[in-house]
């Protein structure tokens, strides 16, 4: 019998993974619905293409490398959906295909599959798409709703939108990110199903609030602009790429918030969340190392 070593968390039974991923999909549903309501059919198409590409891509890769095809654990579907939600509704469909494949093959598959990657696949794919085809990801669409406002996103035009608009999402932006109300519903679902804990989303959001405020932005507007809430709930909390201890998670959240503020203020990219979380993903192994939980029953040696 081949013994397979993995680090915690040990979620490898397709049943358990499937249940977890099912919860995530459920939590994503409000955002997906909101996205379609606000942006219409293009949003639905992009999300569908993204999911299909991710699932098909993973199935093909697993076939190609002689593994059991495990797409029914739904992890690829989740990756695809999250990626789709990170796109501008005006993005061409092939962008979703490229992104989906990049995520499941390069960022996840080449490293061994579920649990073996060190970057969040959807986020890394989004970064790749952003760097490769910037204009497709930064051309926005006006929302369809009646009292919609067209024009630059809140990140580019902070004073152009009321907090109410930012919260409900009648604004230009990425499909899944705009409706913060839906994100919060999703957050509650994830908490209630015990899929995630509050530490990362809360620390990330608060940290962004504080640091953006310190750097001269309206803190509440900063948190409600762009993908901060969506990312903090659905992307930063990816088990595989975030620290395992609560102390580590708090460090991770604070670090991400700081980076978001710095990138938004001084960097080239208006968003910042994508890269901030990716950078924290990279730092996660180190964070884990230095915030190890004391194993139960182990006592520190008495100092001589």
């Amino acid at each position: 019998m081949k013994l397979h070593l993995t680090p915690a968390p040990h979620v490898h039974s397709p049943q358990t993974t499937r249940a977890l991923m099912g919860n995530v999909l459920l939590a994503l549903a409000p955002c997906a619905v909101a996205g379609v309501v606000i942006f219409g059919a293009p949003a639905l198409v992009l999300m569908a293409v993204s999911v299909l590409s991710a699932v098909a891509g993973e199935a093909c890769w697993q076939r190609l490398t002689g593994q059991k095809v495990r797409v029914n654990d739904l992890s690829a579907a989740v990756t695809g959906l999250i990626l789709g939600m990170n796109l501008s509704p005006r993005a061409p469909w092939w962008l979703a295909v490229v992104g989906g494949l990049f995520a499941v093959v390069l960022v996840k598959g080449l490293f061994g599959g579920l649990g073996d990657n060190f970057l969040n696949p959807a986020l890394a794919a989004r970064a790749f798409l952003l760097v490769s085809w910037p204009r497709y990801l930064t051309t926005w669409a006006a929302p369809l709703a009646a009292d919609a406002v067209s024009g630059a996103t809140p990140l580019a035009n902070p004073s152009g939108y009321t907090l109410g608009q930012l919260f409900l999402g009648n604004i230009p932006g990425s499909i899944g990110e705009v409706c913060k109300a839906a994100v919060l519903v999703g957050f509650v679902i994830l908490l209630c199903t015990k899929t995630i804990t509050w530490h990362i989303p809360v620390s990330l959001t608060l940290s962004t609030l504080v640091f953006c405020g310190l750097l001269g932005y309206n803190p509440i507007a900063a948190v409600l602009s762009g993908g901060v809430l969506f990312a903090s709930v659905f992307m930063a909390t990816d088990y595989v790429t975030c620290p395992m201890s609560t102390k580590g998670q708090l460090v991770y959240g604070v670090g991400a918030g700081l980076l978001i503020a710095l990138i938004r203020k001084f960097g080239l990219y208006p968003e910042g969340v994508t890269f901030a979380i990716l950078l924290m993903n990279v730092a996660t192994p180190l964070i884990d190392r230095y915030t190890k939980r004391r194993v139960y029953g182990y006592e520190k040696e008495a100092k001589a």
Binding site: D116, A127, L278, N281
Partner: peptide, 28 residues
């Protein structure tokens, strides 16, 4: 502990990892 495919073990995956880290660093 990752189940990296055999031909990619070692330098190939190191380079790919470096590439992904470099991608993250583009944020700066």
């Amino acid at each position: 502990f990752s189940r990296i495919p055999a031909p990619f073990k070692g330098m190939p995956i190191t380079l790919i990892s470096a590439g992904l880290i470099a991608l993250a660093f583009i944020g700066f």
